[in-house]
Measured scan of single mutants.
Amino acid sequence: SHCAGCKEEIKHGQSLLALDKQWHVSCFKCQTCSVILTGEYISKDGVPYCESDYHAQF
């Protein structure tokens, strides 16, 4: 499978399933500020955001 963030193949190591896609753990980050999302996040149109950036933009 391929990472939804960087589009590279996910080989051995940690990956996560979010928004119905596979991601490298380090690629699942806020679209705006690039903080790596480990806990709470909000998505809009399949794109992840941290809570503060989501509320600031939408």
Rank of each mutant, 00 (worst) to 15 (best):
S1A: 04
S1G: 11
S1R: 15
H2K: 08
H2S: 06
C3I: 01
C3Y: 01
C3G: 00
C3S: 01
A4K: 14
G5S: 07
G5L: 08
G5E: 04
C6D: 02
C6W: 00
C6F: 00
C6E: 00
C6S: 01
C6R: 01
K7L: 08
K7T: 14
K7R: 10
K7N: 11
K7V: 06
K7F: 09
K7Q: 10
E8Q: 08
E9I: 06
E9W: 05
I10R: 02
I10V: 12
I10C: 02
I10M: 13
I10F: 08
I10T: 10
K11S: 13
K11C: 12
K11W: 05
H12Q: 12
H12N: 13
G13I: 05
G13Q: 13
G13M: 09
G13P: 08
G13R: 06
Q14M: 05
Q14S: 10
S15D: 15
S15K: 15
S15N: 15
L16F: 13
L16K: 13
L16H: 15
L16Q: 09
L16A: 07
L16N: 10
L17K: 07
L17H: 08
L17R: 07
L17P: 15
A18R: 14
A18N: 08
A18G: 10
A18F: 07
L19G: 11
L19M: 10
L19S: 08
L19W: 05
D20T: 10
D20F: 04
D20L: 05
Q22G: 10
Q22P: 13
Q22I: 13
W23S: 03
W23G: 03
W23H: 03
W23R: 03
H24S: 03
H24D: 03
H24L: 00
H24P: 00
H24R: 01
H24K: 02
V25W: 12
V25R: 14
V25M: 14
V25T: 14
V25G: 14
V25P: 15
V25H: 08
V25N: 06
S26Q: 15
S26C: 13
S26R: 14
S26F: 12
C27Q: 03
C27V: 00
C27K: 02
C27H: 04
C27S: 02
F28R: 03
F28K: 03
F28P: 02
K29F: 00
K29T: 08
C30S: 00
Q31Y: 06
T32N: 06
T32H: 10
T32R: 14
C33R: 03
C33H: 02
C33N: 00
C33Q: 01
S34H: 14
S34I: 00
S34D: 09
S34P: 01
V35L: 09
V35Q: 15
V35R: 10
V35E: 10
V35Y: 03
I36P: 06
I36E: 08
L37P: 02
L37G: 03
L37C: 04
L37Q: 02
L37W: 00
T38R: 12
T38M: 05
T38C: 07
G39C: 05
G39P: 05
G39M: 05
G39H: 07
G39D: 10
G39A: 09
E40P: 13
E40W: 05
E40R: 08
E40T: 05
Y41W: 12
Y41S: 05
Y41M: 07
I42C: 15
I42L: 13
S43M: 06
S43W: 08
S43F: 06
S43P: 10
S43D: 12
K44W: 04
K44H: 12
K44C: 03
K44A: 13
K44D: 13
D45S: 07
D45P: 01
D45V: 04
D45T: 10
D45M: 05
D45Y: 05
G46R: 05
G46T: 04
G46D: 05
V47L: 11
V47W: 08
V47A: 13
P48S: 05
P48M: 05
P48T: 03
P48I: 05
P48C: 03
Y49C: 04
Y49M: 09
Y49P: 01
C50L: 00
C50M: 02
E51C: 07
E51I: 03
E51F: 06
E51R: 10
S52Y: 06
S52V: 11
S52W: 04
D53N: 04
D53T: 04
D53H: 15
D53L: 01
D53M: 01
Y54C: 14
Y54R: 09
Y54W: 09
H55D: 12
A56E: 12
A56S: 10
A56G: 12
A56P: 08
A56T: 09
A56N: 14
A56W: 07
A56C: 14
Q57R: 10
Q57M: 11
Q57F: 15
Q57D: 05
Q57P: 06
Q57V: 14
F58R: 07
F58C: 08
F58M: 07
F58W: 09
F58I: 14
